[in-house]
């Protein structure tokens, strides 16, 4: 019997496409953010509201990833922003080759910022580099305040944490969610993570998040 050392990365095909996306985006000075969360945390609602609040300031395009349907891309197009829908047909995450294709269909020259809304899943998308500048993790207060402890990878790897649906904390709906605990747990994993508590429904906290985006988009 013979043992052969191989030492080959298994997902290197994904990384090859990710690198191409990085090159394309950096040549054109475009900011690209990969948004990751559980299903229903409010990603599409946040994006639609962000696009409206930033109208006339920065131009945003969106790549929507869903297992099925183009409902989310339709919701983005309703804000007048360009959106490309990717259907993964069962796959639990977007991969870089799909982003490469979607980027070629977006009017990228006219845009400052490209958002990728990943498939609703707090685990698998974390492993796949899409060529983004940074990951943005969204956690809604309805999901519970133990998520940074239970799913450390995405909190450790993200540049921004959006804590969404904070309107529910003061709405009389009885939700046990300790905002300070989530902030502390996330910062233990990731000292430099930016944290914005927001409500995509009422608009609370959106200004700080949008100012961060303007700053980040002008710095690429």
């Amino acid at each position: 019997m013979e043992k052969v050392r191989v030492g080959k990365k298994i997902l290197d095909e994904n990384d090859r496409y990710a690198l191409e996306n990085i090159l394309l985006l950096s040549r054109k000075n475009k900011l690209c953010l990969n948004m990751i969360s559980s299903p229903g945390s409010g990603k599409t609602t946040i994006l639609a509201r962000t696009i409206s609040e930033l109208a006339g300031k920065i131009k945003i395009g969106v790549i929507e990833g869903d297992i099925q349907t183009d409902l989310d891309a339709e919701r983005i197009r309703a804000t007048k922003a360009p959106a490309i829908q990717i259907n993964t047909n069962g796959a639990c995450h977007l991969s870089a080759v799909q982003i490469s294709d979607a980027l070629s269909k977006l009017p990228i020259e006219d845009l400052d910022l490209i958002f990728i809304e990943n498939v609703g899943n707090l685990v698998c998308p974390t492993d796949f580099n899409l060529g983004e500048n940074a990951k943005v993790v969204v956690l809604s207060v309805a999901e519970g305040d133990d998520k940074p402890a239970k799913y450390p990878a995405i909190f450790a790897k993200s540049k921004v944490l959006l804590i969404n649906k904070v309107d529910l904390l003061t709405s009389g709906a009885s939700i046990d969610f300790d905002l300070d605990k989530v902030k502390a747990d996330a910062r233990r994993l990731n000292k430099t993570i930016e944290i914005f508590p927001i409500s995509a429904k009422t608009g609370e906290g959106m200004t700080d998040w949008c100012n961060w985006l303007i700053d980040a988009a002008t710095r690429v």
């Binding site: 019997m1 013979e2 043992k3 052969v4 030492g7 298994i10």
Partner: peptide, 11 residues
């Protein structure tokens, strides 16, 4: 990263 380190082969 995910790596394939080693393969055992039989001839």
């Amino acid at each position: 990263p995910l790596m394939l380190e080693e393969i055992e082969l039989e001839t």
